[in-house]
C-alpha cells in the first residue's frame, strides 16, 4: 500500500472534531466486552468519521485489546471500509467490457495521471476520489465515467481535463 493510504501523518485532532472523537470512544466502550466487536465498531466509527486513518485504527485496536494487524486485515478485507478520506467528488470509471473495448482503460490511465492518484485514493486537495466500476448499464455511451451522480459519456482521453475542470 502506498504511504498515502497509511495516513500516519494525519493529525486526528485537526481532521476530526472533539465530538466525533468522543463518539468513537463511546462506540468502543459500547462494544468492548462483546465477542466479535471489531466489525460493528469499525462500521459505526466510519459512519461518524467517514474514513478510518491509521491513528483511528490504533485507537480501536487499543480499545478492543486487539493487534493492529488484525484490525488492518479486517479493514482491507471488506471493501465497505475505507482508510482514505473521501474527496468532494467521487470519480467512478467504468471498466466493464463494453467501455473497456472502447478505450475505458486509456480514460482511466489518463484520469490517474491527471489527478495523480491510484485507485481508491483521494487527491491531496480532497477534491476527487478515484474508483473503478464494472458496468453501470450505460454501454451505449461508452466509455463512461461518473462524477458523483453525473454521467459523462463518449469520452476521449483528451477531454478528461475539461470534464474534471468543471468540478471545483
Amino acid at each position: 500500500m502506498k504511504a498515502k493510504a497509511r495516513n500516519a501523518d494525519i493529525d486526528i485532532s485537526k481532521e476530526f472534531t472533539p465530538e466525533q472523537l468522543k463518539k468513537v470512544d463511546k462506540i468502543i466502550e459500547k462494544f468492548k466486552d462483546r465477542p466479535g466487536a471489531l466489525i460493528p465498531v469499525l462500521e459505526e466509527a466510519q459512519m461518524v468519521l467517514e474514513f478510518l486513518p491509521m491513528p483511528i485504527l490504533k485507537i480501536i485496536a487499543g480499545g478492543l485489546n486487539l493487534p493492529l494487524s488484525q484490525v488492518y486485515g479486517v479493514v482491507t478485507f471488506y471493501s465497505f471500509f475505507t482508510m482514505t478520506p473521501r474527496g468532494k467528488y467521487t470519480v467512478r470509471v467504468c471498466l466493464g467490457t463494453a467501455c473497456y473495448v472502447r478505450g475505458g482503460k486509456a480514460i482511466y490511465d489518463n484520469i490517474k495521471k491527471e489527478l495523480n492518484v491510484e485507485e481508491g485514493e483521494t487527491t491531496d486537495d480532497r477534491m476527487f476520489t478515484l474508483e473503478t466500476v464494472r458496468c453501470i448499464g450505460a454501454c451505449g455511451l461508452g466509455p463512461v465515467i461518473f462524477v458523483n451522480d453525473n454521467v459523462h459519456g463518449r469520452l476521449k482521453p483528451a477531454k478528461i481535463k475539461d470534464v474534471l475542470s468543471k468540478y471545483n
Binding site: R6, P67, S69, Y72, T76
Partner: peptide, 21 residues
C-alpha cells in the same frame, strides 16, 4: 499473544503481513 501479522486484503491479493505492510 503478539498478533504481529494477519491476513490482509482479499482474494488473489490477500497476503499475510503486518499492518500497513
Amino acid at each position: 499473544g503478539v498478533g504481529a501479522i494477519d491476513f490482509a486484503y482479499r482474494g488473489f491479493k490477500s497476503k499475510v503481513c503486518p499492518q500497513y505492510e
